[in-house]
Design a protein around this nucleic acid. Structure first.
Lengths: 253, 253
DNA sequence: TCAAAAGTGTTTTGGTTACACCCATGC
DNA sequence: GCATGGGTGTAACCAAAACACTTTTGA
């Protein structure tokens, strides 16, 4: 993965610029052709897959670091991105801790210690994202949630936790703005919800409920071209959407 | 706060045993006499108040560290304790970073760097907790949520975030087991909910709802001694309570 | 005997679920 | 013209909200 020389340079550079022992890993969700996708990276020359991740600059806020990582991997900016959990099992990074054991002494090796990683998840526009590998990856690609490669370290757990969080989120926050194109039809939006939840929803009730939130604008044009009756196009009412993000959509008690 | 000698020893010891740049802060909630309480510490000889906190041993899981801190400050163990957010603003620990600037050189000073802190919150039994100060505090005490001293650093924000999380939690998880005594009356439990939520609830609807969860056992004895009609005593049905913790109490969609 | 607290049941209502019919389009 | 997908309305149902009366107890 690294030659000795490359590793030395990387470690020296990292020690200088980044917070020790801390990483950020991002679960980046996209939606395309009725499927929920996750962005994953493949290491050069190995059959090893990871979530996009990175480190935190010494004077950088955590959210800024996560945004930087997201932007580096997708070209996208200013989108829904949220911290959801810290993963800190003492053994979680053991494979990495030992990876370069024989190449350079541990006190010079940036990877020789236990790492904590802060999990972020993001919802992004599949079409406008431009998956870009990082320096030690040969590939950055969307993978279907049902067709994921085995992920290294605890990245499988991180992904699962992100998905659970997203499903919970559905109950009290609007989602979709960053996952859907500017204009979309109600059945398309429904498909997104069904995919995230992994279950079918009633067409009519879904529509009523969504419209009830008041976060959608109906455009008075149908989607042309498809077979069958042309569905209306909608867009999000950004102002109300933002309000709903803050206020929550419903709220027990 | 520290003499030079004490500080040196502390730093050497800390560097040896703990993860750098990481702390844990705990928002420990208790409930007593109809008031929600939070455990806070007062620094020796200063009017400076903090949340209970500590560091993570090099090979210690995060949850274990949080439990250890909780046990050190309260004597309590195995209670509800949950990570809820990481606070990582680059300036959040600045006052501490600079505190000993002139006492020992920064490379020896454990506090000279930016710290990330992982926020945990706990719900504990007020009566059985035994507040115990740590080595640089002169006092560890319950303070009423409405009568809090100003907290140092971002501990005010940490507390507020914990409280928001707790209020959200009420909607989909049972709480109370760790906050209430073994036996309690329905009005007492209701008072807990009202206090956390900061609003009055209807007596009858509250009772119906609580009983509907199936997590309470009515003991066929009333609470004696008080004026007026004697209320029934209840206890939690621990098995069902645990199930409800896992399953959730209700759940949109 | 009366005020204050606690137990219980009923009505109302609003939201969710379930379901049926009509409309538009391409083949 | 018919199969398919999309739009809309309504009845049934359930859970939450609102609300009133009775019981117990100490002062």
């Amino acid at each position: 993965m690294f030659t000795k020389q490359e590793l030395k340079e990387f470690c020296d550079n990292a020690r200088l610029n980044y917070l020790d022992h801390i990483s950020i890993d991002c679960v980046i969700f996209g939606f395309h052709e009725g499927q929920l996708k996750v962005l994953v990276l493949k290491v050069k020359g190995e059959d090893a897959w990871y979530l996009p991740g990175g480190f935190v600059l010494k004077k950088e806020p955590l959210d800024t670091a996560a945004n930087r990582i997201l932007k580096d991997r997708t070209g996208l900016d200013k989108i829904f991105l949220q911290q959801f959990h810290v993963f800190g099992d003492p053994d979680r990074s053991r494979p990495h801790n030992e990876m370069y054991r024989d190449l350079i002494p541990p006190e010079e090796n940036w990877f020789s210690h236990r790492f904590l990683t802060i999990g972020y998840y993001a919802l992004v526009d599949f079409v406008h994202a431009n998956p870009t590998p990082d320096s030690h990856s040969e590939m950055c690609a969307w993978r279907d949630l049902n067709d994921l490669p085995k992920l290294e370290l605890d990245h499988g757990l991180i992904l699962k936790t992100a998905l659970d969080t997203l499903r919970l989120q559905l109950n009290y926050q609007p989602i979709g703005y960053n996952l859907m194109p500017k204009e979309f039809t109600m059945p398309e939006l429904q498909k997104l919800y069904e995919t995230i939840l992994g279950q079918k929803l009633d067409r009519r009730n879904f529509q009523r409920r969504m419209l009830g939130f008041g976060i959608l604008n109906r455009l008075d044009r149908p989607r042309k071209g498809g077979a069958h009756k042309a569905p209306y196009l909608y867009s999000f009412d950004l102002k109300n959407y933002q309000d709903a993000l803050k206020e929550g959509l419903k709220g027990g008690w």
